[in-house]
């Protein structure tokens, strides 16, 4: 197989995007009304993710209960058919998935107003139907939408995106082909600020390039926040008009 040109001299990537372009982002909320209190369906490029939020509800185990605040639990189910090649084993107890779950819990713990819901538990269930790079960022976006749909008080949106570094050019929102051929950084940005709730670098990146990578990542996350916000407001208007037309 001939080697793919990841970033052509003309400045185009494998899927025809420029360095600072996001993938198609489509999202909807309130998709699984009977299965959960809040739900979202997110497509970020070829990532397809269903997020279900249940709660605040009584914890199943008393030992998980906190008197001061709500506890969050995240369960990620990466389906075996989610990649081109079907995986032979279930992903459920992989250390990588456990790490992702912990990271997501800790990201949202600081952003949900947990002190408003003492003695309760918020369960987040994620089903990854298809993955194509930048999974962690998409999971963050999905959870943010589902939590908002569930009406759980949060300080702000958290939007996530991955940025890669190809030679000296930062590339925004990597797909799986790009992700496997360069080092990448995943960011979780709080609202419109420049504050990072989550920052993961898993491969080598020159220290002096980090700043430019973070800058484009933050800009991309703000754009994702805008797209999510637009969808939420559209959904809100629709529901509001349903309510007013019923009266």
């Amino acid at each position: 197989m001939s080697r793919l040109e990841i970033y052509s001299p003309e400045g185009l990537r494998v899927d025809g995007r420029r360095w600072n372009e996001l993938r198609r982002l489509e999202c909807s909320i309130n998709t699984h009304t009977s299965a959960s209190d809040g739900s979202s369906y997110l497509e970020q490029g070829n990532n397809k993710i269903i997020t279900l939020v249940n709660g605040p509800q009584e914890p199943k185990l008393r030992s998980q209960m906190s008197i001061q605040k709500a506890t969050i639990s995240v369960a990620i189910n990466i389906t075996r058919f989610s990649k081109m090649e079907r995986s032979k084993t279930s992903h459920r107890n992989e250390r990588r998935v456990l790490e992702m779950q912990t990271a997501l819990v800790r990201t949202f713990e600081k952003n949900v107003q947990l002190h408003l819901y003492p003695r309760t538990q918020i369960d987040i269930q994620i089903h990854v139907l298809q993955q194509d790079g930048g999974l962690m960022g998409s999971l963050i976006n999905g959870i943010t939408l589902a939590l908002i749909d569930a009406g759980i008080a949060m300080y702000d949106y958290i939007s996530g995106v991955s940025v890669g570094l190809y030679d000296t050019t930062p590339l925004l929102d990597l797909n799986s082909v790009e992700e496997s051929s360069m080092s990448s950084v995943t960011l979780g940005v709080v609202g419109k600020s420049e504050k990072l709730s989550l920052l993961l670098v898993e491969d080598k990146i020159p220290l002096d390039r980090m700043e430019s990578v973070l800058a484009i990542g933050i800009a991309g996350s703000h754009r994702i926040r805008e797209l999510m916000d637009r969808e939420l407001r559209k959904h809100g208007r629709k529901r509001l008009s349903n309510v007013s037309s019923n009266n």
């Binding site: 699984h32 299965a35 070829n46 397809k48 058919f81 989610s82 081109m84 089903h127 139907l129 298809q130």
Partner: peptide, 19 residues
């Protein structure tokens, strides 16, 4: 699901959903 050869999603009126 473009990465699968065939896929389907079924939703019943009581909210039972299966992919």
């Amino acid at each position: 699901l473009p990465t699968s050869n065939g896929s389907s999603k079924i939703v019943a009126s009581d909210g039972t959903e299966c992919i």
